[in-house]
C-alpha cells in the first residue's frame, strides 16, 4: 500500500538518508528501530513532505510520486490521506482537545460542523478522553496530550498513520496509556509506521520491524524473525546491547 524507494536526504554536507527502501502493506504495523541520529525522524518527515527529499519515489495506494518534484497540490492531497503523531504532540495550543480533532475535518476537509464534532467526540472517547473535550493542551498531561494527538490523526480516517517516537517525551508512568491506545488501533487494523524505542511494542504489536543505522536500513523483516532469528550481525549487536541496557542479560 505504501512503497518507498531510494529516499535520499542531506542536510548541507551530511547525508542523513542514503537510499532507504520501505514497504508497508495494508494493516501492517511497522516498527522502525535504530539508534538516535540514524535518520528515522527524517525518513518520516520526508514521506510526509515536511522535508523535501533529494531523491526517491513513493507509491501510495497505487499512485506514484517522486519525492522531490511533487507539487504543492499533490502534497496537500497526499497529506489528507495520512496522519502524523509527533514526538512532542504538537497539539494546537489555542484549541481545545475537541477542536484539535475537528480542525482538520471542518477546515481541512470542509466537513459539516455537526458531523465533525460527532466524529471528534467519538475519536476522543476511543482514546479514553470523554471527560476532556473542552480542555486546552496546557491543561492536559503529556499522556493525555499524546492521546488527543492520536485521536486527531485517526479522526480523518487516514490510510496510514506515522508515529515518531510517540512515547519518548513522556514520563515512564505515562507511556502505558499511549501504547495501549496504539495497541487498540493496531488491533482494529489501522496501518501504522512507528518509530519507537519501545521494544515490547515492536515485539508484540508490530508485525514488521525495520532497523536503521546511519541512514540505511540494516535489516527488515517480520517481527518474529527479527527478534528470534536476526540475519545481520549488526542486528544481533543491537539486540544484545538492548537487552544489556534493560538488564536482561548479565
Amino acid at each position: 500500500m505504501l512503497e518507498i524507494k531510494n529516499i535520499k536526504k542531506s542536510f548541507g554536507s551530511t547525508e542523513v538518508l542514503k537510499g532507504v527502501d520501505l514497504s508497508v502493506e495494508k494493516g501492517d504495523v511497522v516498527a522502525i528501530l535504530g539508534p538516535s541520529g540514524s535518520g528515522k525522524t527524517t525518513l518520516l518527515r520526508c514521506i510526509n513532505f515536511l522535508e523535501t527529499a533529494d531523491d526517491g519515489t513513493m507509491v501510495l495506494d497505487g499512485q506514484n510520486y517522486h519525492l522531490n518534484t511533487t507539487s504543492k497540490k499533490e502534497i496537500s492531497a497526499l497529506r489528507k490521506q495520512t496522519g502524523f503523531v509527533f514526538q512532542n504532540y504538537n497539539l494546537f495550543l489555542n484549541k481545545t482537545a475537541l477542536q484539535n480533532v475537528t480542525e482538520g475535518l471542518i477546515i481541512g476537509r470542509k466537513m459539516p460542523k455537526e458531523e465533525a464534532i460527532a466524529i471528534g467526540k467519538a475519536a476522543l472517547d476511543k482514546v479514553g478522553l470523554s471527560d476532556r473535550y473542552d480542555y486546552y493542551p496546557r491543561q492536559l498531561s503529556g499522556g493525555q496530550q499524546q492521546r488527543v494527538a492520536i485521536a486527531r490523526a485517526m479522526a480523518t480516517n487516514p490510510k496510514i498513520i506515522f508515529f515518531d517516537e510517540p512515547t519518548s517525551a513522556l514520563d515512564p508512568e505515562l507511556t502505558g496509556e499511549v501504547l495501549a491506545v496504539m495497541r487498540q488501533l493496531a488491533r482494529e487494523g489501522m496501518t501504522m509506521l512507528v518509530v519507537t524505542h519501545e521494544m515490547s511494542f515492536a515485539r508484540t504489536v508490530s508485525n514488521k520491524v525495520v532497523l536503521m543505522e546511519d541512514g540505511v536500513v540494516v535489516e527488515s523483516g517480520s517481527s518474529k524473525d527479527f527478534f528470534e532469528n536476526p540475519k545481520e550481525e549488526r542486528t544481533k549487536t543491537f539486540l544484545r546491547n538492548l537487552s544489556e541496557s534493560l538488564g536482561l542479560v548479565d
Binding site: 510526509n48 496537500s76 509527533f86 504538537n90 494546537f92 480542525e103 482538520g104 477546515i107 480523518t156
Partner: peptide
C-alpha cells in the same frame, strides 16, 4: 513553535488556514 505549522499541514490544512486559525491567534 514550528511544530504548530507542521501539525496543521499534517491534518490537511493549507498555509493560510494555519496562519489565520493557529499561528496568528497564538
Amino acid at each position: 513553535p514550528v511544530g504548530q505549522m507542521e501539525a496543521g499541514y499534517c491534518v490537511g490544512m493549507s498555509y493560510l488556514q494555519i496562519i489565520f486559525r493557529i499561528i496568528l491567534p497564538q
